[in-house]
Write a protein that binds this DNA or RNA. Structure first.
Lengths: 349, 349
DNA sequence: GCCATCGATAGGTACGTACTATTTTTCGTT
DNA sequence: AACGAAAAATAGTACGTACCTATCGATGGC
């Protein structure tokens, strides 16, 4: 049995979310609510305290209680949460830099955290966000291809009208949320057709099993092969996950995959530059030469790909523009605008 | 006139901070407090609510109200705030990486923010930290050489027993706080003696006016010159601040400084690599050659110093070890340990 | 037309009472 | 000694009352 003040608070939350209280200026007085809900004024006050803690409402003695949708600036500065899987590794510094450059020019404090692609950390971080309401959130989904145990927390963000922009990875279940991603299905196709143009026919791939990007790149990959009339051989495909990234090539299935490469494969589409590099290490240990014996193509155009030799073929996306786009969308959403999701195209490097 | 519940809350805060309530397990009941303070139970409850919001206290129905000093883990994960002046620029990624590597291995979520060396942002961020209590804070001071308007907020962190480690820059006023810094006074001396060893005698310097590092490096610089029996000429010293960094060399005083360099100066100690680079641009525009006409030495050993040509002499400190040290200290402090401040030595590169 | 005053209205503080839901302790029985 | 039921202790919910204080708007005097 829910306590009355909870019930009142929930009812008010619903009303606010439904836009029943217009335009954010002045609505509802304690005495009126007391009559409306048939409870005492104390109970109403207790309920309103909850809303106040959530930043949904602002009380002014002598004046009234004000619904504050729209940017609830805190001392004039917006505060935005940014949650990515990693911060200092790989392509994330570039993305963060892009986000930062937009937010900082808008008098906006940013709070940056990393999930390390673990749902328990994602949970802890989302709970923090819910405790200290922020004006908006940019977040990269965690293991987006697996059932996510934190969907309910995202729903609560939605209920509280906190704008959320997903970047890079998003949860297909959350249809209402905006995302800024790369067009991974098209990327998969591009990678394959780039290889086919070079006359390579026997194409394998390494994909990530626990996020959507991996699934979509594989889908594009498979579709492109099929359209070219080429078989998609399961033996030429290797799946890995966050947890076994550092050793999947050494395990039994990985070893089988490597033997197959040696035997009858011309080229491999790699999930990203990191994987490509790990593969190259294994290949050079087995004295398979790249690109003479085997061609590689990968995604992300990270620092890895330009440093290593021979230089990798990689699909690139403008990483800082990526972050900037997400940040700009979020700011517009905080201003109350409706935004559409976008999938940015890849470019071959 | 402070309301009673505020007074009660403050009194309790003081008692807790003073360690009057032992060992964090079980103390104070509402009925007792009601008698002790001579107020109603409702008022006591209102006071305790404040403490609860601050995370100082935990209430369990049927059991009691528990003082929670020590790591108040949130679902088993610690949460730590990290505030630096910048995140993605210059030497900060390395420092952040160091912090991150320690914290992430301890099941710890990190929330990273930047002040851009502005005290208003520092204020907004500290207020956020006070609203959502964290288990600890690593922070780089903002304009540490100027009177800081946010000292009161730091005092409040201290009152709440939230461990704070200053990194890089700290406020001398806050004597009780721990800091992890570079030994800037010694660094200033080292820079000068390195130049003197090369036989250079007429030494100038560029220093930052608004943070302690600038003042200390200048102090070491001046002391070393004096001990060598050389004059410290004000005309060979140029001061800049965060705000005029990008143009101080173009302004009148900067121009005078540059003329003086051309006239009778052998070497310049630069506050950091960034400044050194900006100076080199100006010098090459005036066709003054480095190091033939003028030697430069600077601080930080950032990516700049190794990329630019000719390579800079720069004083280096291990940036990621720096961050790791701060993070380790903080974690130990969260466990209740007393920690000492350290000043890490420089090394010439 | 301007300004001071005052009253109505809003939320804020403070206390009291009664009862509820949990947890802890106590105590009697087996 | 072990168990379990009753009692006590403790925080949570709910309502009522009274009064305080800030805000805003209306009234009225100049």
């Amino acid at each position: 049995m829910e306590p009355k003040y909870q019930a009142v608070a929930d009812a008010l939350r619903r009303d606010i979310a439904a836009g029943l209280y217009r335009d954010g200026d002045t609505l509802l007085t304690e005495a009126e609510l007391k009559d409306q809900f048939g409870v005492s004024r104390q109970t109403v006050r207790q309920a309103i305290s909850l809303l106040e803690n959530d930043g949904l409402v602002l009380r002014r003695r002598g004046s009234g209680t004000y619904v504050t949708h729209g940017p609830r600036k805190h001392n004039g500065t917006l505060s935005v949460g940014v949650i990515t899987t990693y911060i200092t590794d790989y392509i994330f510094p570039s993305i963060v830099r892009g986000i930062e450059s937009v937010l900082s020019s808008e008098n906006c404090v940013m709070s940056l955290s990393a999930t390390y692609n673990r749902t328990d950390r994602e949970r802890a971080l989302l709970e923090r966000v819910l405790e200290t309401p922020v004006d908006g959130l940019i977040i990269e989904g965690t293991k987006t291809a697996l059932p996510n145990p934190n969907i309910a927390l995202y729903e609560r963000l939605w209920e509280r009208n906190i704008p959320v922009v997903f970047i890079n990875g998003y949860y297909p279940q959350l249809k209402r949320n905006v995302h800024v991603v790369t067009d991974d299905e098209a990327g998969g196709r591009m990678a394959v057709s780039a290889l086919l143009e070079r006359g390579l026919r026997r194409v394998g791939g390494i994909f990530k099993s626990d996020d959507m990007q991996g699934h979509l790149r594989y889908q594009g990959f498979a579709a492109a092969l099929e359209e070219a009339g080429l078989p998609v051989s399961d033996e030429r495909i290797c799946w890995f996950s966050t947890e076994n990234l550092s050793r999947f090539l050494c395990e039994e299935t990985g070893a089988a995959f490597l033997r197959r490469l040696r035997a009858d494969t011309d080229a491999v589409v790699c999930y990203n530059d990191d994987v490509a590099l790990r593969l190259m290490e294994q290949l050079s240990a087995q004295s398979i030469s790249v690109p003479d014996d085997l061609s590689l193509i990968s995604f992300d155009n990270s620092a890895f790909s330009s440093i290593c030799s021979p230089k990798l073929s990689t699909l690139s996306h403008p990483k800082d523009a990526f972050g900037r786009e997400a940040a700009r969308k979020l700011l517009r959403m905080i201003e109350g605008a409706q935004e559409e999701s976008v999938a940015l195209p890849w470019e071959l490097v």
